[in-house]
Design a protein around this nucleic acid. Sequence first.
DNA 1: CTGATCGCTTGACAAATATCAATCGTCCCC
DNA 2: GGGGACGATTGATATTTGTCAAGCGATCAG
Lengths: 232, 232
Amino acid sequence: MRPDDIPEIRTLDLFRNMSDESFGDLIRGAYVQTFPPQVQLITEGDYPDFLHIVLTGSVEMFASWNGRETSMATVRPISTFILAASIKDAPYLMSARTAEKSRVIMLPSMDVRAVFEVDNGFARAVVGELAQCYRAVVKTSKDLKLRTSIERLANYLLRSSHRAGGAAEFDLSIEKRRLASFLGMTPENLSRAIKALRPYGVEVEGPTVRIVDRDSLEGLAKPNPLIDDPST
Amino acid sequence: MRPDDIPEIRTLDLFRNMSDESFGDLIRGAYVQTFPPQVQLITEGDYPDFLHIVLTGSVEMFASWNGRETSMATVRPISTFILAASIKDAPYLMSARTAEKSRVIMLPSMDVRAVFEVDNGFARAVVGELAQCYRAVVKTSKDLKLRTSIERLANYLLRSSHRAGGAAEFDLSIEKRRLASFLGMTPENLSRAIKALRPYGVEVEGPTVRIVDRDSLEGLAKPNPLIDDPST
DNA sequence: CTGATCGCTTGACAAATATCAATCGTCCCC
DNA sequence: GGGGACGATTGATATTTGTCAAGCGATCAG
């Protein structure tokens, strides 16, 4: 691990309120690695060796069953993934692969569990992180069950715009076929859904999205903080 | 609260490893109430006043958007619900109503958060509970995205049978229209899906289900512990 | 007993979504 | 520069799923 990685990690919510000693125990066995795109980092069903933290790039979480595959989430810096499995020492429910070139910290799960047992500040921080993850999955579940595919796309675009600081023009930061899978549709249908949003002031050219008429799009999307606000 | 409720609660995973003092603080302001069926206990968007624990009966968690409603989960004894919102003091993402006559403990959220801050055993127990909830939602999300409606029904029936001790004959313990909503389909389609499972040895009469040919049903359902095993 | 209500079921139809096949464009490698 | 690979798009078609309307059967109140 590079020495200048350490202060950056130390300030994460998850590690901020733990003792120096515990933090030292955690990062002693840690290492940072840079992966090229499309490298599978973990496989569902395996037992967790490491708690992963994405420093740069992005990581796609996905799941498979019976020869089918679906994209579950994209993890962006700086966040952990697979915390629940690491703490419980339970098998991964999802696989992960780098979506682009990514720098990832890996903390041995054994150390994570050991520190969790002795450091009360860390234990409480884990609660915060897990609650956040739980609520995020509940939101995407509501998105999937309550909305049509076009409504999901419309809200996804509004969320993306918001993440880009409210910009009217921004880039889809993932491939369209992965976006399709994340939104629970086929790539073909995503193409058609994009066209269906043109009357609502959405212009898409390659990876670039321009929201020309936000009011119109919001009229269709009806964004709701209990589904679309990632911060609550 | 009735005195004989207390030891039962004390043995729950969530409360087993906390100090007597903390436990006393928690239940001091608690009360137990029995609700008739179809009483709405909490409403999404509200801030949590209480952490709820179902002692008997069952509670349906559901969510709404834009005039639509979907069933998210059924909480059965003895489990908590809305723990994440209580701990974070964040708005409920789901509403809850009693599905049948139910006895429910209500612990003031303020007390829960206060005890969480001081009792380390409780804080760690909260982690275990949250991780469990998180993984449960991930599983249902995979179920929804990777399976067709008939496959979801087939696996639901196998899980129900397993919960009934592996019995070939058991009762659907929820209304069919709620089951349909939970499985992400309409009541009409659930009816048709049930008929579609007849060639796989599934006989349904009213609320009673009989799995005549488990091998055949499993051949269709292809149950997978990373989706269908609630214990991992 | 009777009528009303309610959940479930069924059939006919409509809408949404997936699948298949072909094409287009871009990027990369030779 | 010329394939070739790959992702995106489009059109045609099939499948799945939802909607609407009607009817059935159980339950319950009067």
